[in-house]
Nucleic acid binder design. Structure first.
Lengths: 205, 205, 205, 205
DNA sequence: CATGAATGAGCATTCATTCAT
DNA sequence: TATGAATGAATGCTCATTCAT
């Protein structure tokens, strides 16, 4: 291994080290607990060092978000490769996202952070990163819908729009989890979720 | 008017005064600009006074959120009373919510704040407040669906679930506005929104 | 003494306390050593407290500058009231400014800070403060020139311009103190200063 | 070319490369924006390399200052060689310096930085550098005055002192530009400048 | 020669909240 | 009731410089 490669590797290791620290914070105390100085302490690196490896806090957030999205992608990818009914696939994907939002709450939070915050904008530089990670999930869903249509199981003129709508519905409903004890009253949030998924799938059958 | 009533009235006046200040800040500089000391300056009241009338910052946020929800409710209420087709009503409501999220961005932000933030939970005390304001919107939609069913225009076994799903879909899709330039690519976000609404309504026809 | 007066007095005392700390820093370690946290430590007050009494660091700087200008003013005022020849007055004022720049170096520095820094701009709010303090010195000089003209000692069509020029020359030359060992070579800086003052006064005789 | 010369040449090339970067920063974002790491990025050299070619940041500043002074020198040199009246020459030089302070603001800033900053002292090593660049301007002026005296146009016993005074006056008055809106009131700063130059020249006629 | 990783003190400023008056 | 003084931890970020490679 040449000097260059080793350097690059070491650099990656440090970046990972920082990310590890940030992730540890995220999972131990939540999104709000992530600050550069905390990461610095957690990683046992100087503050300046953090900034040497990441341009700013946002970049670290993006990295964490990418992790979350990648994890979610892999989960959905598994399902998409299963040899099951297309409708069933969508159902399982929905369930998986629901589960993800509960069990990988912190990853969900950070994904949501970029989607919900009134102030955050994606810097152009990060556009590609988001594209690479986030879009792939949508493509996965669209592929299933496309295939379903081909196989004659689904009937939908605009599979792309449907896929986004599908995902948007899941996303919006997960937010409503917070309302479980109030607005939703006796409605079980999970049943509501299932109902919606059914409805969606039925709408393209 | 007894002493008690007068006192209560005065108390309400002060609370309103504080809320006015907070709203001014919200609309002039956004959610993030609201701080107790800023409210104190804006309202020309001492910080201590703010804390006398509101337990903490969150309570003020809740009050602002209620305002936003009330405004949104009134908009939707107008539509619901119109003498138009039930499907059309739902379409108009959806459009109105979309418009609200753009034109009353700050109110939308604060509503969203409670729905999206990973840390905020509704304290039991606030449950009733949320019920009073937020739930009514859902009821409005449910009534339309119910009526549509009665009239034989719609066909849906669980109108309540559908209403929540309807709202959740709108909500989730509005969040995706941020992705317009990246993931959605050439998809027009608004058209996507319209498509989804059509789909939803069609699914109960 | 009413509550109001006492409060106002106490407030002034605190402001002074903070200013004392800032001045101590200025005189012990120079302009560059003044930072809010240092002032906080020196004054044994919390950082937040500093900000309660002063809007920002600049405001403290302005206060210090005012002190310096006031001191300088009083020195010049003394001279201006002396019963001596008008030319002699100007000479003494010049000498006094020279002395001030050496013996009250730190005050000179902070006055100079606002005059020389490429980035500092006077906020409109501070305009009046500057007016009140700085302009008075110029007026003092102008009064002497005016009087000299009236008495027939001086002959000058535009006493205001001359006064500013007079002051500007002194100011510029003091800056050249730094060049004593290099550009000025064997020229004594002080003699150069005296020469210039003579020249200026002679020019209106 | 021997090895030594080549080495020296290469060294100079690197130094220039670094200076180019620093100048770019100076002119794009001002004096305050110059930092070693910024220069490093701009020049595409490592920070360590910068330190190899320049002892510290100050040395780079000195180099930039020399550039500025050299530019100013060349401007003044042009004027000094013109076949015009000696008084006119001084007027044009003054005007040129004024223009320089406005149009080459960043160069003026960095020259001023060394003259005004309370902390910077010229290290003995830099003495020669300053001599070479700064002093020449003064000599230029002195030559004009000398010549004027010889020709009988001027009458002045100490041309060197006068030249420094001349320059000091210009310098000090340029600083007062900042006071234009406050202390100077309705006085036009430029007219004040012109007035002062006239006065100075007249004083040696 | 050249690199660039590492440092950590330092910066100005904001914040929600408390509490004695 | 109403005040507003006081807090100090916390924020993201920059900096000049060093030094092992």
């Amino acid at each position: 291994m040449g000097v260059k490669e080793r350097k690059a590797l070491e650099k990656q290791i440090r970046r990972d080290q920082i990310l590890d620290a940030a992730r540890t914070l995220l999972f131990s105390s939540g999104l709000e607990s992530i600050s550069i100085s905390r990461i610095s302490k957690q990683s046992e690196l100087g503050v300046g060092t953090i900034y040497f490896y990441y341009k700013n806090k946002e970049e670290i957030f993006v990295a964490l978000q990418k992790e979350g999205v990648t994890l979610l992608y892999s989960i959905i990818f598994q399902i998409s490769k299963k040899d099951i009914d297309h409708g069933e696939k969508l159902i399982r994907i929905a369930k998986a996202y629901y589960k993800f939002s509960q069990e990988q709450k912190h990853y969900f939070d950070i994904i949501n952070y970029f989607l919900s915050s009134p102030i955050v904008f994606f810097e152009p530089d990060l556009k590609n990163q988001i594209d690479m990670s986030g879009r792939k999930i949508l493509v996965l869903i669209k592929d299933i819908v496309d295939e379903g249509i081909q196989k004659g199981v689904f009937n939908e003129k605009d599979p792309k729009k449907f896929s986004i709508m599908f995902w948007g519905t899941l996303h919006g409903l997960i937010h409503f989890k917070k309302l479980e004890k109030t607005i939703l009253e006796k409605e079980s949030h999970e049943k509501l979720f299932d109902y919606s998924v059914q409805k969606l799938i039925h709408s393209i059958k």
